[in-house]
C-alpha cells in the first residue's frame, strides 16, 4: 500500500505511527489507518483542528451536538487520556482498543470500573450509582419513584458490595461482573472487526508498506 505516499496525516496533532499503535493494540496497521479515516471525520466536524472536542464527540455519538449526557461525558473523559480536554489520535485508538472483541475481559472490567467511578476515588459509591440511575431515567423518560430507585440500589449493593461498606471496590466489581457478564456487553464493538471495510478509503492515504500490514 505504498502507492499513495502522503505526509498530511503526520500534521495532525497527536498523530502516531500506525505501525507503533498496531504494536500496542489488538488492531492491525490497516485497521489503525481505517480508524484514522473515522478520526479525521469526527475531529473536523465542528472545528477542523485535528483533535476531537467533547462537542465533536457528542455530535458523532448522538448526531446532535446539543445533547448533554452524563455517560457520554464520562466516556469522553476516559478517551481524554492526557486530560487535555481533547482527544488526539493516539488516545482514540488506545481507548477504542478496550472495545475490541479481542481485548481482554480484565481490561474491559477495569474500563467499566473507571467509567462508573465518577469521582475517581477508587470506589463506586452508592451516591454515584444513584446519580447515574437518575441520569438514565431522565434520558429514557422513564418515571420511577424515589423509593423504587432506593430498592434498586439496595438490591444492587446487597449483591455487589460483598463487605457491605456502602461502596464497591475493584475486586467486588470484578466478582459482580463475573456473575453478571451482560454488563460487559457495552464494552465490545463488533464494528471494530470490520473497520477496514467500513472505511476503505484508508488505502488511498496509507503511508506504510503492504508488508507491514
Amino acid at each position: 500500500m505504498g502507492c499513495f505516499h502522503s505526509t498530511a496525516s503526520r500534521q495532525f496533532p497527536g498523530y502516531e505511527d500506525p505501525v507503533f499503535l498496531a504494536s500496542q493494540t489488538a488492531f492491525s496497521v490497516s485497521e489503525v489507518e481505517a480508524l484514522f479515516e473515522l478520526y479525521k471525520s469526527i475531529s473536523s466536524s465542528v472545528i477542523d483542528d485535528g483533535l476531537i472536542s467533547k462537542e465533536e464527540f457528542q455530535l458523532a455519538l448522538f448526531k446532535n451536538k446539543k445533547k448533554e449526557n452524563l455517560f457520554a461525558n464520562r466516556v469522553f473523559d476516559l478517551f481524554d487520556v492526557k486530560h487535555k480536554g481533547v482527544v488526539d489520535f493516539g488516545d482514540f485508538v488506545r481507548t477504542l482498543n478496550f472495545f475490541h472483541p479481542n481485548a481482554s475481559q480484565e481490561d474491559k472490567i477495569d474500563f467499566t470500573f473507571r467509567l462508573y467511578d465518577l469521582d475517581g476515588t477508587g470506589f463506586i459509591e452508592r451516591q454515584e450509582v444513584r446519580q447515574m440511575l437518575i441520569a438514565i431515567l431522565c434520558e429514557s423518560e422513564l418515571k420511577l419513584a424515589d423509593e423504587t430507585i432506593e430498592v434498586i440500589l439496595d438490591k444492587t449493593f446487597q449483591e455487589a458490595d460483598v463487605n457491605q461498606d456502602g461502596k464497591i471496590d475493584r475486586s467486588e466489581w470484578q466478582q459482580f461482573v463475573s456473575r453478571n457478564p451482560s454488563l460487559l456487553k457495552i464494552m465490545t464493538l463488533p464494528y471494530l472487526r470490520d473497520i477496514t471495510t467500513t472505511f476503505p478509503s484508508f488505502v488511498f492515504h496509507s503511508e506504510v508498506d503492504e508488508m507491514a500490514t
Binding site: L38, I42, A60, L61, F62, K63, N69, L70, F71, A72, N73, R74, V75, L96, F99, L115, Y116, V129, M132, L133, A135, I136, L137, E139, S140, L142, L144, T148, V151, I152, L153, K155, T156, E159, A160, F176, N180, S182, L183, K185, I186, L189, Y191, I195, T198
Partner: peptide
C-alpha cells in the same frame, strides 16, 4: 430503558442501556 421490568434489573443493567454508552453510533455514517 429496556423491555424488562426495570425494578427487576440491577442498577448497572439499567445504566448500561444509556445511549451515551453505545459507541456503535460512532461508526454509523
Amino acid at each position: 430503558v429496556a423491555s424488562q421490568n426495570p425494578v427487576t434489573m440491577n442498577a448497572f443493567e439499567l445504566i448500561s442501556t444509556s445511549q451515551g454508552l453505545n459507541l456503535g453510533t460512532l461508526f454509523e455514517k
